[in-house]
Each structure stands twice: as C-alpha cells, then as structure tokens.
C-alpha cells in the first residue's frame, strides 16, 4: 500500500477538520468522496506534505512525511484544489517552471519531459499560448500536466472535475484512468459520477471521519433493498424524479416498488441526508 493513514486528526483552531480518519490506498484510482467541508482538501494537503497533522500516522510510499518530506516530494504529483497559475507565462513556460521546482536541472531532458506531459493531457498545440488566454478546462489540464512531471508514484488531485462541462469531464476521466494504470492516484470529488466512472476504491468522508471504505459496487450495495419508487413522498430521503414518481431511500412506503440502486443512493443513505444538509 502506497498510502496508509491511521487515526489521523487535524484541527484548525477549535474546529476539527479530520477526526480519527483511517484508510489505505494502493495502485489505481482511489476516490475521496464527501460533501463540501467533509475534510477532503485537508486530507489531501496532509498527504501532499503541505500541512502537518495533529495526531495519528501517515505513511506515504513507505515513508513518514514528518521525517522525510523531501524524499516523498520527489515522487509526488499534486494538483491543489484552487491553484492559480502564472498567467503571464506560456503553457510551456509554466510547466517548465514547475519542472525546475521539481529539480529537473538538465534543460534538454526537462524540456522533453515538459513536452511529454503536455502531449499526455492533449495540450501540445497550445503550448505557446499564454495561460491567461486559456479556458478554465484547459487550465485544469495544465494543472494535471504539471502533476505528471517526473513520473510520480503518487498523484493527488483535489476536485479536478469541478467546473468542467460534460465533454471535458469525459476527457478527464479518460486521462485520469490512464494515469492510474501504473501509479497510485488519489482524487477528491463531491460527485458520485466521478467515483462510478473512475475509481477502483472509494473512501467516503463525513465530518472528518471515514464513513465508508470499499469498492463503488459495495457503496451502491448499501442501498440494495432500500431504494423505492412510489407515488408519494416517504421517509427523510425522498425526491420527485422526472417521471413524476418519488424516489425514496430507506424504509418502504406503502404501494412502492423496489428498484436497482445507484452509487448515489448508497452515498446519500450513508450521509443520512441530501448533501446540502450534510454540510456543516
């Protein structure tokens, strides 16, 4: 296992962002799923060595981030949730700049690597463009490209699909699943579609705790036998679907029909409410 987290806690002042969290992740894409404020960014920043924990243990690539941050950083790729870019740089210059910060001193080799990652995210054609001239989706791809520099063993992506349109989202999934083929990718999201499409394993965060760890199929199975369609609203988790019927999670209302659950159903049951209500 490349990432092993045990009983991790992190407090900001008096508010507890992570509260005894444990999980592990190996090769492939692991999703961190949770509503806003669940602690996903806090966890990813801890894994990225950008933040120190208050308690518990983290082992990354077999190392302790408190003791060997530099060795971990050399094998790490990281896309922060709300990163900016040096807008006056071209795409090539910006990624080259990050490559320099990643200690790639030899110019030829570095430029080759920059071209490789730009090709990998499909940005070769705009490498001469200024960052400020790019669309949001393209900028996000620049962010992914820099996270791939130097073939990192561990890639951390914090909400990489937020704000993308469906087509861009599709490209992203393809890209991220390809990246996950031969390394450990940890991706945070608040959308179950991402998890369903991408992740071999998923960890659900709720209020800084681990509410679930398993495969997406197992997450879906949580709602097996508890997802109903009926013509009336029942239970606390219920909403009207497009065809006029109510989808109810939990106990069966009268005159209802059992249906196949989705991952979303399992996730909602786990949260015990709609995501808006689950935020703290």
């Amino acid at each position: 296992m490349n990432v092993v987290v045990d009983d991790l806690t992190k407090t900001y002042g008096r508010s507890r962002a992570l509260d005894g969290l444990s999980f592990s992740a190996g090769q492939g894409v692991t999703g961190l799923l949770g509503p806003n404020g669940a602690g996903k960014t806090t966890l990813i920043r801890l894994l990225a060595t950008a933040l120190a924990s208050d308690g518990g243990t983290i082992r990354l690539l077999g190392m302790d981030p408190a003791k060997e941050p530099a060795a971990i950083r050399r094998r790490l790729g990281y896309l922060p949730q709300e990163t900016g870019y040096h807008r006056a740089f071209t795409v090539f210059e910006f990624v080259d700049y990050v490559a320099i910060l990643k200690e790639m001193v030899d110019r030829r080799a570095r430029h080759d690597e920059v071209r490789r990652v730009l090709a990998e995210v499909g940005l070769s054609d705009v490498s001469h463009k200024k960052i400020r001239a790019l669309s949001g989706g393209m900028r996000r791809r620049v962010g992914i490209a820099q996270a791939l520099l130097g073939e990192p063993a561990l890639v951390l992506l914090d909400e990489p699909t937020v704000g993308l349109d469906p087509e861009q989202r599709l490209r992203f999934r393809e890209l991220i699943s390809r990246i996950g083929e031969d390394r450990t990718v940890i991706l945070s999201t608040h959308q179950t579609e991402d998890v369903a499409a991408l992740c071999a394993r998923v960890v659900v965060l709720k209020g800084g705790r681990q509410a679930f760890e398993g495969t997406p199929a197992e997450l879906r199975a949580l709602a097996e036998g508890r997802t109903w369609l009926s013509d009336q609203k029942a239970g606390m988790l219920s909403w009207r679907t497009g065809d006029g019927l109510f989808r109810n999670l939990g106990d069966a209302p009268g005159g209802s029909r059992l249906v196949e659950p989705t991952i979303e159903d399992g996730y909602l049951l786990l949260l015990g409410g709609l995501p808006e209500e689950a935020t703290r």
């Binding site: 950008a50 950083r73 040096h86 990050v98 910060l101 200690e103």
Partner: peptide, 17 residues
Amino acid sequence: DPAYEIGLVAPYSAFRV
C-alpha cells in the same frame, strides 16, 4: 505566488528561491 501550493510541495529549496 499564484501557484504557491505547488511550489510548497516541490523539492526545490524555498529558501533558495
């Protein structure tokens, strides 16, 4: 630095920069 967080976890010495 707009990309501060990326630089923060890069191995290049921040002191040197």
